[in-house]
Design a protein around this nucleic acid. Structure first.
Lengths: 152, 152
DNA sequence: CCATATTTGTAGCCTGTGCTACATTTTAGC
DNA sequence: GCTAAAATGTAGCACAGGCTACAAATATGG
């Protein structure tokens, strides 16, 4: 494997700048949404089927299928044809972190007086962009303010 | 089945479910990042050049180029080869909304005790997922807690 | 137990974002 | 003014996420 002259892979510069770029983050967000939902479906209905996921995610079963394949390559799920999708240990762990984070964000928003439905919707988008530090600031705020104070 | 099997465009069902799906949102987020940055570069340096954008976004100039083409198709920017990129009226408007939103989120996070650097970083990811209602809850919180310098 | 409905899988297309490699145009220096 | 460097543009590849159309497996109801 001495580098064939063809390409040489050109050492890429550290790629500093805004780390949020790198499309990869987007697919990681999607992965989290999937494992979170798979865990939920298993918990509530006993199984995570492709069609269920598709309906819940608002995409076709084809999209789900391919994403599941990717997650399997990444070692997050364990899927066999025509069977319910299972989470690996890694997937389960990830789903729990994700769920915890999700719930904190929801609670936090509600504590600000954001209506339930909106809180859930926004949390879904925000949760993947909340750093550890910000998350703990949310927790601290929740502790300070006791619980959720209704709007008005 | 006299329906001509060829194409028929099949009326797509409403595609309810989680509206956050629909990959399109992702490219919309990127569009906002671009117009926001273009506005900033014009404001601070007088011009928005491809290379500048690329450096700031942490991607290659090629990626910037193609995205700019897409934004131009969408009527947000006005670009001529080898010239500085200009915002259209629509682009300017969008960039201002985006900036305002961004600043509110940053101020809000800071008011919770999140360190400046983290606040900026997280805001960049979060800002695209904060609904109007949540945003106004942020504003209300800022007002309640004093340190509000409303980003006009 | 078989016919049909539902679910799941596969093929193939499009778009968007990322890249490298290379071509072209501007800009700077001499 | 001309040459070299920098900036910009173009071609073409890879991958992810979206889709429709169609095929195959599984479930369900006579």
């Amino acid at each position: 494997m001495n580098c064939p002259p063809t390409k040489a892979a050109k050492v890429r510069p550290p790629l500093q700048g805004n780390p949020r770029r790198t499309r990869q983050e987007h697919s990681q967000e999607i992965a989290l949404d999937y494992v979170e939902l798979i865990a939920e479906l298993i918990a509530t209905t006993g199984a995570a089927r492709v069609t269920n996921l598709a309906r819940r995610l608002g995409v076709t079963h084809v999209t789900v299928n391919r994403t599941i394949q990717r997650l399997q390559r990444g070692g997050l799920v364990n899927a066999q044809p025509y069977r319910s999708i299972l989470l690996t240990e890694a997937g389960r762990k990830l789903s729990e972190e994700s769920r915890r984070r999700h719930e904190i964000v929801v609670e936090f928003l509600k504590s600000l007086g954001v209506p339930d439905a909106v809180a859930h919707l926004d949390a879904e988008g925000m949760e993947h962009h909340v750093s550890r530090k910000t998350l703990s600031a949310f927790v601290k705020h929740l502790e300070r303010c006791g619980r959720h104070q209704p709007p008005q």
